[in-house]
């Protein structure tokens, strides 16, 4: 097992190792961060606002004098887990529809594909805005909105994969044997889609992080008293003229998370980056 891990790491290009480090770092922060936070997330602990780094406040304080480090540690939890949840849900739903469409074919495929084509024609951020306007933006709703927004994209990729596989002889063999659609979907087709689907989950994760932090940045995402990394950028936007840490740190946090994930996915692509 450890041997596999070391050979995996050795074969990973440098960009992939950087990506892996960043992703593992942020996952760890999201899991353990809040317990490491030196201050309570909502406490006004500094008389000064937008103060710089100091021994008391490692990453300075925000526009209300709250500890930036603590807020980022908490905020990353919202960002990471909302995105992870939405990405996984979107891939599960999209892939289920894709398998149904590919294996049933005929009008089932026509109807599902046409519906997904419709949803994919609504640019994801626009769709998310309409959903927010309609439903609001509580945490469960945001999870739902992000999921719905990225189901069609995953469906399209998963359907293309499944269609290629269904056309292969081993699926014909299973059909000729008399296997039912569930066996064909789960035992014959799905196992051959796992790698690209994992990569797609990673991509959706990046998209959802960008979408939700974008929404929060517009004030339409995670609402106070909760705050994800995007909300932190928004609430501290007035500090931009002084280049406050309170705005730079959460923005960089998002960027390192998404860039890291993207570098990792790219390095894991079959055939490497070339």
């Amino acid at each position: 097992m450890t041997g596999k891990l070391t050979s995996f790491l050795r074969n990973l290009p440098a960009s992939g190792r950087i990506g892996l480090t960043l992703v593992v770092f942020w996952l760890a922060i999201a899991l353990a961060g809040p317990s490491l936070a030196p201050y309570s997330v909502g406490a006004f602990v500094d008389q000064d606002v937008f103060s710089g780094a100091s021994s008391r406040f490692w990453l300075g304080s925000d526009y209300l004098g709250r500890d930036v480090l603590s807020r980022v540690l908490w905020g990353s939890r919202y960002t990471v887990f909302l995105a992870l949840g939405a990405a996984i849900l979107a891939v599960c739903i999209g892939t289920s529809f894709a398998l149904l469409a590919a294996i049933r074919g005929g009008w089932t495929d026509e109807v599902i594909s046409r519906a997904m084509d419709t949803f994919i024609s609504i640019p994801s951020k626009i769709f998310a805005l309409v959903l927010v306007a309609a439903f609001g933006s509580s945490l469960p709703l945001l999870l739902l909105i992000a999921t719905l927004t990225y189901v069609p994209g995953n469906f399209r990729i998963a359907r293309a994969l499944a269609m290629n596989l269904v056309a292969l002889d081993f699926v014909q063999v299973a059909r000729a044997r008399g296997e039912g659609p569930v066996h064909i979907a789960l035992r014959e087709v799905l196992p051959n889609m796992i790698h690209p689907l994992l990569a797609d989950t990673g991509l959706r994760f990046v998209f959802v992080v960008l979408l939700l932090s974008g929404l929060s940045f517009l004030g339409l995402g995670v609402q106070p008293p909760h705050a994800d990394l995007g909300s932190l950028v928004r609430e501290n936007i007035s500090g931009i003229t002084e280049g406050a840490l309170a705005i730079i740190v959460p923005a960089l946090a998002i960027a390192t998370l998404t860039v890291g994930a993207n570098l990792l996915i790219d390095a894991l692509k079959p055939g490497g980056k070339a």
Partner: peptide
């Protein structure tokens, strides 16, 4: 249509495909 054939009928006629590369599931 094979969908209407019984499992026993299906068993008695077996098809061997041309290209074993695609006829064998690479995940199995």
């Amino acid at each position: 249509d094979m969908a209407d054939r019984s499992r026993e009928q299906l068993r008695r006629i077996q098809l061997v495909f041309q290209n074993a590369d695609t006829a064998l599931n690479p995940a199995h």
